[in-house]
Simulated assay, not measured.
Amino acid sequence: MRVDERIGPYRVLEEIGVGGMGEVSLALDGAGRAVAVKVLHPTVARDAVARRRLEREVAALRLVRGPNVAEVLDADLGARRPYLVTRYAQGRTLAEVVREHGPLRGEDLDRLVRGLARALAAIHGAGLVHRDLKPTNVIMVDGEPVVIDFGLAHHLDATRLTLTGTAIGTPGYLAPEVLDGLRATPAADVFSWGATVAFAATGRPPFGAGPSQAVFSRMERGRADLSGVPRELLPLVKAALSPVPARRPAAGALPGNEDLAGSAVDAATEHVPAPPPEEPPEPRR
């Protein structure tokens, strides 16, 4: 988008990113406040069914509130160029912070662990699933994580999957059952929480690099490299990265959400204690 271009009532200042959802720009609202305006993927504009589905989703997204999520402020999905407006989180992505300064330690890591858990609790409490939690979708603002692009990722990817026949997702962070074509549930977000926390603590993706097929195989077998994850976090991160969704903890049971035990958020995924070590399942053939 061009500088000074208008998207609805918002004046564009600069483009700040291009991703799976479309173009993202820093803009000003009518009161001069900074916001992030996301002009959604062209497939949304052409697909009336997807657009109606997204309109219902946005109504739910407006209910998500919390310091660790970039709340939805406005949207016009019926416009010629459908757009979504969220709170602007001024900072750097977790991926950039770790790349430049190394793994998080001590209080910095603890704030990330708890902030991401609170973000998932807010999202799941509204009946939504993020589906694409990863280091590039976490903005670090004064040491606190702010999760962006929540809620819409699932519906946008479903539309693109229908049109292109290509699976969408980030190897090593998207839960293996979603890669197998199953519906994303809150348990899938807990898997992504574990992978993102492991990255923050070690500076590397927990399932390694290389061809996507190799990464997927390690995920399905539960072969995460967690060396470097602090001892006190290790059991919970291991459980979160289980290839079996029912063996993962609920978001309400993660550090930072202790006061949610027994709530609707805690019930969003069945909380099963971390299982004893066992042989991983056989990989698909």
Rank of each mutant, 00 (worst) to 15 (best):
T185N: 01
L234M: 06
D110C: 01
P103N: 04
R248C: 09
A274N: 02
G66R: 04
A122L: 09
V229M: 09
A153R: 11
F191Y: 15
P276I: 04
S263H: 01
L84K: 03
G22T: 08
P230Y: 07
V12L: 09
T164M: 09
P275R: 00
A188M: 01
A50K: 01
L254K: 04
P235W: 10
A153S: 14
D132Q: 00
V265E: 05
A267F: 10
L156G: 00
H130Q: 03
D180W: 05
M1H: 15
P9L: 08
G203M: 09
G22D: 12
N137A: 03
F216S: 01
P235I: 12
L73S: 03
F207P: 01
A79F: 04
R11A: 11
A75R: 01
L152V: 13
L61C: 15
F216Q: 08
E5D: 14
E57V: 11
R65T: 07
A31W: 04
R46L: 12
R221L: 11
G172M: 02
P211N: 07
L233F: 08
G115Q: 13
A117V: 12
Q90E: 15
I148L: 11
R221M: 13
V272K: 00
D266G: 14
G115Y: 10
V18F: 15
L94H: 07
K134E: 03
G17V: 06
R111T: 08
D132S: 02
Y173I: 00
S25I: 05
T93E: 11
A250N: 13
L13M: 15
R284Q: 09
A89C: 12
